[in-house]
Design a protein around this nucleic acid. Structure first.
Length: 285
DNA sequence: CGGATGATTCTCT
DNA sequence: GAGAATCATCCGC
């Protein structure tokens, strides 16, 4: 058994079978795995169901876009927004209730090299440095400075890119139902803190990545693992980011003082095009 | 640091 | 046709 490596158990489906505002804070510190990359969640937002949460995609009922949110709990709802970004949610409550938790930020805890490649413009064309490409999506213009570790999954669209989540993963089940032997292993980010909370790895070791870490999760599958939840008093909450309604509902949750939490941005109304500022004005090209 | 801005397309009104 | 659960970049301080 390698020292310093922990194996974290997958969360059962019943974990997600609760109201999203209860699931959301409980997701902090958990680890979302998709293929080789894993992210420890540090910031999330809860969205409620039809008629109860004006900021939710399901507020006005079921549509083709939000259908997954009305499906069984524990599945990924991945939607496209702003013409270029994907954002990932985890569906809560039983079928037909239409609520979810938006994954806003996290710390990449496995295959940061692959996450950085995706965030740096890879993943759009070829198969990737390890041959296992996956969709990049959205972000990824060539850039001048290398992306800092803390920024790899800092923000919902960045998190989606880092994990390789895009349109084709909408509806993917994030509850692990494979064999225990297939479980991934990750380095312990907080060694010797309060040992005993998690069991040490007993399964077969995966392949070492560029940083010498062990991974070994099957491609194309996802799971949420127990991970390393924060102390209860390190959980903060406040208004959700970037929405124009329900500004007073404190359903954004994050880990206090975590460097990967995204900066809070209140909703800024998109200014109408200059052409529409007055009646009869000649539109600009 | 904070504010402004453009990118780019889907969804629902 | 408007607005969107966003991000990177540019500019001024």
């Amino acid at each position: 058994m390698p020292s310093g490596i922990l194996c974290s158990a997958p969360l059962p489906r019943r974990f997600f079978d609760r109201p999203s505002h209860e699931v959301a804070p409980d997701l902090l510190g958990r680890v979302l795995v998709h293929g080789p990359v894993a992210v420890r969640l540090t910031e999330v937002e809860a969205y409620g169901g039809p008629g109860e949460d004006p900021a939710a995609h399901t507020y006005r009922g079921r549509t083709a876009r939000n259908a997954v949110m009305f499906g069984p709990p524990g599945h990924l709802y991945v939607y496209f927004t702003y013409g270029m970004h994907f954002c990932a949610n985890l569906v809560c409550l039983p079928e037909e209730f239409g609520s979810a938790v938006l994954l806003r930020a996290g710390e990449v805890v496995a295959r940061a090299d692959l996450a950085r490649w995706r965030r740096s413009g890879g993943g759009l064309g070829d198969g990737g440095p390890d041959g296992g490409g996956l969709a990049g999506g959205g972000l990824g213009a060539p850039r001048r400075k290398p992306i800092a570790d803390r920024d790899l999954a800092r923000g919902p669209a960045r998190l989606a890119v880092a994990l390789g989540l895009a349109r084709e993963h909408n509806g993917l089940d994030a509850v692990w139902e494979g064999s225990p032997a297939g479980l991934p292993q990750f380095p312990d980010p907080t060694p010797a803190q309060d040992g005993g909370r998690l069991d040490h790895a007993t399964g077969p070791a995966g392949h070492p990545d560029h940083a010498g870490r062990l991974t070994g999760f099957p491609k194309g599958t996802a799971a949420v693992l127990e991970g390393w939840p924060p102390e209860a008093d390190a959980i903060r909450s406040g208004p959700r980011t970037g929405i124009s309604t329900a500004k007073d509902t404190p359903w954004r949750f994050w880990i206090d003082d975590d460097p990967t939490v995204s900066p809070y941005r209140p909703h800024t109304p998109r200014r109408r095009s200059a052409a529409a500022t007055s009646v009869g004005e000649v539109p600009r090209s």
